[in-house]
């Protein structure tokens, strides 16, 4: 009897769990998995995004590798992603150490540094666009870097970093707080201070946070989009055209729907591979606390 009752309670509970999960699953499949699969399907067509289309097999994929514009967008995106990821992580780690120390107004500072996170990327992009177009040239007496094919990417990096530092810093602060105080004290007594303390004790012990941040920031930066819409629209002369922007722009309004779907599929696979590889590599350097 007791077992039966237990089984009944169990099945009731399972039904509740299913009731919670199934609607979400349906929504996820409808708005994520299904479009993804549709996208894969269209990547084998010459669809313009409207009207009739023909199946073209792997032609889109073959063309992708010969397309200079696509090639340039990959180069630009990876350049921005790698540079931004490094800069964001270094600055965030320094900030986190400052905000984790025994300083006055610590909470106020933490709140202040978190503000960029709650602002929309487009808003931030427009603000910085104004900043680079009017304020910086007025201060330095030079032209806007947004108008320079050589330097516009730097402006994108600055904006991306400025915004992503907020969340990255919070994750580093959490990581730093998980290191037991007495381990630092033992380090101090053993002669590790300053740089040695960071190198031998702090950094190895916050490797889990480093992994999380490297993967998250890299992924976000590879998908850079809003900032480009707000600041350069891919220009000047397509010099700041990111992969996402190219897929969006040429896929939806450039009549290359099928072709850019193929691009999106390749891009998706690439990000997945990079994230998994990064996690694997960095996990091997993590330590169990």
């Amino acid at each position: 009897m007791a077992n039966l009752a237990k089984a009944k309670v169990g099945s009731d509970r399972n039904r509740t769990f299913l009731l919670i999960l199934i609607p979400v699953l349906i929504l996820f499949v409808a708005f994520n998995t299904f479009p993804l699969l549709t996208g894969v399907f269209y990547s084998f067509t010459d669809s313009k995004g409207y009207g009739a289309f023909n199946m073209v097999g792997l032609q889109n994929y073959i063309d992708l590798f010969g397309d200079a514009r696509v090639g340039n967008s990959y180069l630009f995106t990876f350049k921005v992603a790698v540079v931004s990821t490094l800069i964001t992580n270094v600055i965030s780690l320094v900030l986190a150490m400052g905000l984790n120390s025994k300083i006055k107004f610590k909470s106020a500072f933490r709140a202040l540094y978190f503000v960029p996170q709650i602002l929309g990327a487009l808003v931030v992009g427009y603000v910085f666009s104004y900043f680079f177009t009017y304020i910086v040239p007025a201060l330095t007496g030079t032209g806007s870097i947004l108008a320079s094919t050589e330097w516009a990417w730097v402006a994108i990096v600055v904006v991306c970093c400025w915004q992503s530092i907020a969340q990255t810093t919070i994750i580093y602060i959490t990581g730093l707080q998980s290191v037991p105080e007495d381990v630092y004290e033992a380090g101090n007594l053993d002669g590790a201070t300053g740089w040695n303390l960071f190198r031998y004790i702090t950094f190895p012990l916050i490797m889990p946070s480093v992994t999380t941040n490297m993967v998250l920031v890299m992924k976000n930066m590879l998908m850079v989009f809003d900032q480009i819409v707000a600041m350069t629209s891919g220009g000047p002369a397509q010099s700041t055209e990111s992969i996402s922007y190219l897929i969006y722009n040429n896929g939806l309004s450039g009549g290359q729907f099928g072709f850019q779907c193929a691009n999106a599929v390749i891009f998706f696979i690439l990000i997945a591979v990079i994230s998994v590889a990064q996690t694997k590599f960095l996990n091997s350097r993590e330590e169990q606390l």
Partner: peptide, 20 residues
């Protein structure tokens, strides 16, 4: 004088070993 320059060693309650 800094802890490291006092020439002392300490054994902590929670051991404080370097986990890595």
């Amino acid at each position: 004088v800094e802890p490291k320059d006092r020439d002392i060693a300490m054994v902590f309650q929670n051991y404080a070993l370097y986990p890595h």
